[in-house]
């Protein structure tokens, strides 16, 4: 039982990070109607930034987070201004191609700056391990969960209660109406890229703390993609629920199914995708996708 609980708890922690990253995905999808192939690469950059601030500069966790978020905001603004704004009005495919290019460029940059080898920031985090009964939660996971819950909550409040959040939701519905309301949609786009970068980078710092940083950390973008499809491409709430689901399922598969396989493992990373395929067959809009409202 405690083994199961342990899996669920660490799965939840992992899932919150997936949810965080997936929100970045959903925002771009809603505002620009495009899949952001580079979302996972924001995560990778986040991991490396975490390494730089925590290990290279020996900064405390909070300072590292603030600096990384600042860097992410700048990165988001630069990306929007110089690569995506020129494409406003072009077909969505052009935007997707641009995000592929961005992904490649970020990968190259990361290799240039941080080299190709595996980086880890084990040991620099405060060594508190939370014990609840037989359950023990390591510091990386604990900090990760707290940070991702905080960020997800802030984002939800932002969308629900601020004018800029409302402007973003409105832009996702009808750009022309939003402009007729006197709202600059370029500002909304810029904001959407900033949010995508920030959640990616924060997710990267957390994941880097748990499992170290390497270029392939960017592949987590693919998992966020599965999360988004599972939750329903245009639903932020769906992304959160699906993120947690995928995290928990992945851990349970790793804990119970992988040991039974002759290969000794490998199912964990595939399992979420299998679930995604099954769900999509029965619910093409995902679990919580917004349905096109049609009135006659």
């Amino acid at each position: 039982m405690s083994f199961f609980l342990q899996l669920v708890v660490s799965g939840f922690a992992l899932g919150m990070v997936y949810a965080l990253i997936a929100i970045g995905f959903v925002i771009i999808l809603k505002c620009s109607k495009a899949f952001n192939i580079a979302q996972g690469h924001f995560v990778m950059i986040g991991g490396y930034l975490g390494f730089t601030f925590l290990v290279t500069f020996h900064l405390p966790v909070w300072a590292s987070l603030i600096l990384a978020v600042a860097a992410a905001i700048i990165l988001g603004l630069l990306i929007e201004r110089f690569t995506l704004r020129p494409l406003v009005g072009q077909p969505v495919l052009a935007v997707i191609m641009m995000t592929i290019a961005l992904a490649t460029v970020l990968e190259g940059l990361a290799t240039l700056v941080w080299g190709g080898e595996y980086k880890t920031y084990h040991g620099v985090l405060p060594t508190i391990t939370l014990k609840i009964g037989e359950l023990s939660i390591p510091p990386e996971t604990l900090i990760g969960v707290m940070v991702s819950i905080a960020v997800v909550t802030i984002l939800m409040l932002f969308f629900r209660y601020t004018r800029s959040g409302l402007a973003m939701m409105a832009t996702a519905e009808d750009e022309q109406v939003v402009q007729s309301a006197g709202i600059k949609v370029t500002t909304v786009y810029a904001l959407s890229w900033v949010i995508a970068c920030v959640v990616g980078v924060i997710g990267g710092i957390i994941l880097g703390g748990v499992s170290g940083v390497m270029i392939p950390l960017a592949n987590v973008g693919l998992k966020a993609f599965a999360v988004v499809l599972l939750g329903g491409v245009n639903s932020i709430g769906g992304a959160i629920v699906a993120g947690i689901m995928v995290g928990v399922l992945e851990n349970i598969a790793a804990g119970y199914l992988d040991p039974l396989l002759p290969s000794g493992g490998g199912l964990a990373s595939v399992f979420p995708f299998i679930v995604m395929i099954i769900v999509l067959i029965f619910r093409p809009h995902g679990l919580f996708g917004l349905v096109e409202i049609e009135r006659i």
Partner: peptide, 10 residues
Amino acid sequence: MEGRRVLGHL
């Protein structure tokens, strides 16, 4: 605008 153009999910 013509055709109402409500922001339907809001």
